[in-house]
Design a protein around this nucleic acid. Structure first.
Lengths: 120, 120
DNA sequence: GTAGATATACTAATTTATTAGTAGAATTTT
DNA sequence: AAAATTCTACTAATAAATTAGTATATCTAC
């Protein structure tokens, strides 16, 4: 899967959170300094070409929808983190999180419950 | 903290795995197609300027060391993942991992042990 | 239907990232 | 010490990413 550039990523995040967006909506929801309408249009077109988005014409306006799901992209993204920092070891990564987050005992119990419920 | 570009990241990974590298070592350890010596030197100089590396002269050759630790950078990197994909919620992220990774019962037990040992 | 507003295609400018050439200094070999 | 090699500083070319201008089409309100 191709990687998203910073701007592309930012725009994909918005579209993933919605169900279909027009260029004008994207511009509106981007933080200051808002890029030019055509700037966004250009990047959206690149995203269509890369296969991340499809467009559908509503009247004379294009609405864009995600083709690649957030989950699919996220999976890759996280898999890269695991590879890059944790020797591709899931346990190592988890140990890091547990330590990093300075969890309280209650949070740890909660976490254990979550983990168990997902599988057992 | 500034973000690393792809090439910068790749070079930082090598330096983090070592303790101090010369340009020639970096070039040698990069996968094919190996970039030009001066290409690496340029990027290394950018990394010094960004505050990720320091140089020390050994004889007339520069050796480069990490200033920003891998752990510090990794922490940021992971924190962004959490923010970007999991609404900044640690529990949500953990739930995802447990599900995504298709852990066996044993692995889950192991994981729980790891989490407990880190805190309790 | 004319004026004003909005959307898109096309194109190009600008910025950032990556690559590498040339020249000269230092080092090693002969 | 001359020749060959290695390293660096400086500079610039190329490529990728981001930004936005101009022209044209479409719609909306009057």
């Amino acid at each position: 899967m191709q990687k998203l550039t910073k701007r592309e990523d930012q725009i994909m995040q918005l579209i993933w959170q919605s169900d279909g967006m027009f260029i004008r909506d994207i511009v509106e929801r981007l933080p200051h300094p808002k890029p030019h309408y055509n700037t966004v249009a250009t990047i959206v077109k690149i995203l269509v070409k890369k296969g991340f988005l499809t467009s559908e014409k509503l009247g004379n306006v294009d609405r864009y929808n995600a083709v690649v799901s957030m989950e699919a992209y996220r999976k890759e993204d996280i898999s890269n983190i695991k590879k890059k920092y944790f020797d591709n070891s899931f346990s190592k990564m988890m140990a890091h999180f547990a330590k990093q987050e300075q969890l309280t005992d209650e949070e740890i119990q909660e976490l254990i419950a979550i983990i168990k419920s997902k599988k057992v």
